[in-house]
Computed example of a mutant assay.
Amino acid sequence: MAAWTLCMVLVLAALEGAASESRYEKFLRQHVDYPQTPTLAAHRYCETMLARRRVTAPGRPCKPSNTFVHASAEELVAACTQEPDETGFHSTPTAMTLTACRVRGGNTRPPCAYRAKQVQHHVRVSCLNGLPVHLAGTYPPPQ
């Protein structure tokens, strides 16, 4: 009985923590890795970071893609001061180093296997109260 009670307390505490996370905090957790986490082999970076940041979890389907931005939160907040495009998204004025994670094959159930690609792209975000809350996409700098 004590083990069951302890288990329920832990589950409720985890749910409480998730419920109190703001949209901006969730954005940071899921998308900002600055400075970039060192010493991870390229082929393990995505699996490790997605699990560490609680983006993927046992029993849940694999997230098809996720992007980690290797720039400071302040640089991404600055994007919200830029004029939005015709779809309402704000873009970073400069390209940033990113790691784009894409699930390998048709793997939709854990264990999730990802491929990582590092690129220099501009980041498009949705903003709420001057803070980024959704990574809407990325695009390469003009040639």
Rank of each mutant, 00 (worst) to 15 (best):
A136Q: 08
T5Y: 12
T87C: 13
K26I: 02
D85V: 01
H43I: 04
R60W: 00
R60S: 06
L128Q: 01
A2E: 14
S22N: 04
T5V: 15
L12E: 11
T37Y: 09
R53W: 03
R53F: 05
L12A: 12
P140F: 07
E21W: 02
T108V: 14
E47F: 08
D85F: 03
G88C: 06
T81R: 15
E25S: 08
V119Q: 11
P58I: 07
P111E: 06
A41R: 13
S91E: 14
E16D: 11
H122K: 10
V133Q: 09
P61C: 04
C112N: 01
C127E: 10
P64C: 00
V55A: 03
A100L: 14
T37C: 03
P35Q: 08
T87P: 07
L50Y: 01
E47C: 08
F89E: 10
R115M: 05
Y45I: 12
H70V: 06
H43A: 08
V32W: 04
R29Y: 05
S65K: 03
T99D: 07
A42V: 13
P140A: 11
T39C: 15
P84C: 08
Y34V: 01
A51F: 09
V69D: 04
R52K: 10
Y24S: 00
A18P: 05
G105L: 08
R44D: 10
K63Y: 03
A100H: 11
L40D: 10
T92Q: 05
V125Y: 03
L40T: 10
V123F: 05
A42Y: 11
P58T: 02
L50D: 02
T67S: 01
V103D: 08
S65V: 00
E47Q: 14
E16Q: 12
V77Q: 08
G105T: 14
Y114V: 07
A78G: 04
L131W: 02
D33K: 09
T5M: 12
P141M: 11
P64G: 02
L15Q: 13
E86A: 15
C80R: 03
R53K: 10
Y114H: 07
R44E: 07
G88A: 01
A73V: 03
D85E: 05
P142Y: 08
N129C: 09
H121N: 15
R102S: 10
L135M: 06
N129E: 13
D85N: 10
P58M: 01
A78Y: 04
S22Y: 00
R54Y: 00
V125G: 04
A79M: 06
Q120A: 14
V77F: 02
R29H: 01
E75K: 09
P141I: 13
D85H: 03
P140T: 10
V133D: 06
V32S: 02
E74H: 00
R44G: 11
F27I: 03
Q82H: 13
F89Y: 14
T39M: 14
A78P: 06
Y34P: 01
A79S: 03
V69F: 01
A116G: 13
L131V: 07
A13I: 05
L28T: 08
G17Q: 15
T138W: 07
L12N: 11
A14Q: 15
T56N: 11
R104D: 11
P93F: 05
L6E: 15
M1R: 14
V119W: 10
R23N: 09
T94Y: 14
A57V: 01
R104M: 06
L76T: 04
H70M: 03
R60D: 05
R23K: 12
Y139D: 09
